[in-house]
Design a binder for these strands. Structure first.
Length: 239
DNA sequence: GCGATTTCGATAAATTAGGT
DNA sequence: ACCTAATTTATCGAAATCGC
């Protein structure tokens, strides 16, 4: 409980919170100087904020020799730890573990159900986004579709990067935050496969045919999950 | 040792809370 | 409304560290 108060205290400063957000979004190590420049504050102030974030283990710091002489500088990055605050207390993590283990007892049938459910949730999610725009799919350009996919992925907290390749009519899709990471560690194959199906569901809500292939997985030591999605455009079908 | 560079610690400045 | 105490944040200078 003492620790909770510490966390809320650290997060209660807007500057600190924005600094954390900034680091969350840029997917790399940052220096004190960079934060100072970015937020137009004195480097010492930036250092103070960063050290407080490090204190509650939201950030991880590492000293690195500057190469130009002088005391080694510190590099800050997101820590692997998960900070969860829920009032009143809820434990969906435990629930998902129980559900996952139960599903495993069902064998291949269970897996199949898991993937199908993942797929339809992904599709459903994009369906809601489409509905929000109140426009039909054929009114949207590919760029619009990418934007829509990205927006939905951001809503899901994925910190995504999407790149549209015109010639290959494919999408390079990177995810820098996996919201299922802790559960996925229990059963990487099932949870990641389910998440992939979720993505395919999302893609197929706006593109008719999608072939998704995994390039990188953050559970195999990479910094991010990356996929290449080959999509078949409606115009190609007609030809 | 010296210069460059960063951290640490003291203090000033600002904000907030409490009391009369 | 005003003053004071307490807390938080920003600034500045000293100390520490590294390469030469």
């Amino acid at each position: 409980m003492e620790h909770t108060l510490k966390i809320t205290n650290v997060l209660s400063d807007p500057t600190r919170f924005y600094i954390y957000q900034y680091i969350t979004n840029c997917h790399r190590d940052v220096t004190v100087q960079e934060i100072a420049d970015k937020f137009s504050i004195h480097p010492n102030v930036a250092r103070l904020h960063l050290s407080k974030l490090e204190d509650v283990r939201m950030l991880y710091a590492e000293t690195k020799k500057t190469g130009r002489g002088g005391r080694p500088s510190k590099l800050y990055r997101l820590s692997a730890e998960v900070i969860q605050l829920s009032f009143p207390f809820r434990n969906y993590q435990l629930l998902s573990s129980i559900l996952l283990q139960s599903l495993e007892k069902l064998g291949p049938e269970g897996s199949k159900a898991l993937y199908e459910t993942g797929y339809s949730f992904g599709k459903e999610m994009m369906g809601q986004e489409l509905h929000r725009l109140s426009s039909s799919i054929d009114e949207l350009s590919n760029k619009d579709k990418i934007q829509l996919l990205k927006h939905a992925a951001i809503l899901a907290g994925l910190k995504p990067e999407l790149e549209w390749d015109e010639e290959e009519s494919s999408i390079y899709f990177e995810v820098f935050n996996c919201p299922f990471k802790e559960t996925a560690k229990l059963n990487k194959d099932k949870v990641c496969m389910m998440h992939q199906q979720f993505f395919i569901g999302m893609f197929e809500a706006v593109f008719p045919d999608v072939r998704l292939s995994e390039r990188q997985n953050m559970l195999s030591g990479c910094q991010q999950c990356a996929y290449k999605a080959h999509v078949c455009e409606p115009s190609h079908i007609m030809n």
